[in-house]
Each structure stands twice: as structure tokens, then as C-alpha cells.
């Protein structure tokens, strides 16, 4: 028996379990981004975000299984919810945008409102319900639609 190995390995397993549990709890949770008076971020339009629609701006990378889950969820919400679009960006080929928009992990989904302001962000694969709950307050109500 190797005591050093037992202790170091035990610490590693405890740390990994704690990380895994925290990660599982946080994955996909949409954090609201406080509204600011800053001008619309110029990188958004460059990445293909169009104003007038709520956009799910997803950053993905090749080494990333949850990115595929996220793609399916976001594409499905965009397809079934009028006024919502889904744009996916390959993080590796756009490191400038990754730095500019403060992206650290893939998948990250930025929720951009119709005015082009970032209203929320989620790290890890969100569920359909989490995405719908995040976009709902940003969509025009039926009354607003009729008056428009």
C-alpha cells in the first residue's frame, strides 16, 4: 500500500466530486445581465446578430459534447418561437469575440434582446424551459404586437 498515493488520490476524488456537483447544479442557468446605458456592442452585429429579434448567441467549440445539446435546444426554441433567432459561433475561430464578450467556456449562450443589448448569459447546456423562461420577458406582448 502506498500511503502517499492513497492520500493524494483521495483528495483528487473529493475535489472532482465537489467540482462535478457544483457544475451540474450551475449548468445552463441563465444569469441576468444588468441593463446598462452602454452602446450596443459592435461585435454582435459582426457575428450575425440582427436587431429586431431576440437572439440566442451560442459560442461552441469542437471539443464539446454539451455544445451539441445546446445547439439542438436553441435551434428548437428559435424554430418554434416567433421573434427568436439562433446564431452559433465557433469560439476558436473568433477568439477576438471570445475576449471582447468575456466568454470563458463553451457552450456559453448570450441572450441578446431586440435592441441588441445582452440581457442574459448561460454557461453549460440549458434546458428548453430555461431558454424559454429567459426569452419570454424580452418578447413583445400580444398587445404590443397589435399596436405595432
Amino acid at each position: 500500500m502506498d500511503m502517499t498515493g492513497l492520500i493524494v488520490g483521495g483528495v483528487a476524488l473529493l475535489a472532482a466530486s465537489a467540482y462535478g456537483l457544483v457544475h451540474r447544479r450551475r449548468a445552463g442557468r441563465v444569469r441576468a445581465v444588468p441593463a446598462t446605458a452602454d452602446p450596443v456592442h459592435p461585435l454582435l452585429a459582426e457575428l450575425g446578430v440582427e436587431q429586431g429579434e431576440v437572439t440566442l448567441l451560442q459560442f461552441s467549440s469542437a471539443f464539446c459534447a454539451p455544445c451539441r445539446t445546446t445547439r439542438v435546444v436553441c435551434a428548437e426554441v428559435a424554430r418554434t418561437t416567433p421573434g427568436v433567432a439562433h446564431v452559433e459561433v465557433d469560439a476558436e475561430s473568433r477568439l477576438d469575440a471570445v475576449r471582447g464578450l468575456d466568454i470563458w467556456k463553451t457552450p456559453t449562450v448570450l441572450i441578446v434582446d431586440a435592441d441588441g443589448r445582452i440581457a442574459g448569459r448561460a454557461q453549460g447546456a440549458p434546458t428548453r424551459a430555461q431558454v424559454l423562461a429567459a426569452v419570454a420577458p424580452l418578447l413583445p406582448t400580444p398587445a404590443e404586437k397589435n399596436s405595432a
Binding site: G20, F63, C64, L95, K105
Partner: peptide, 18 residues
């Protein structure tokens, strides 16, 4: 959970050019 996914982009954004 794939640790590679978690750390790869952070590593690239600290070190890499596009």
C-alpha cells in the same frame, strides 16, 4: 463531464491567436 471542454477555450484565449 469533459474537462477538456471546460479548460480548452480558457487556455486558447489566454495563449492563442485566432
Amino acid at each position: 463531464l469533459c474537462l477538456g471542454c471546460e479548460l480548452f477555450l480558457a487556455y486558447r484565449r489566454l495563449t492563442g491567436r485566432p
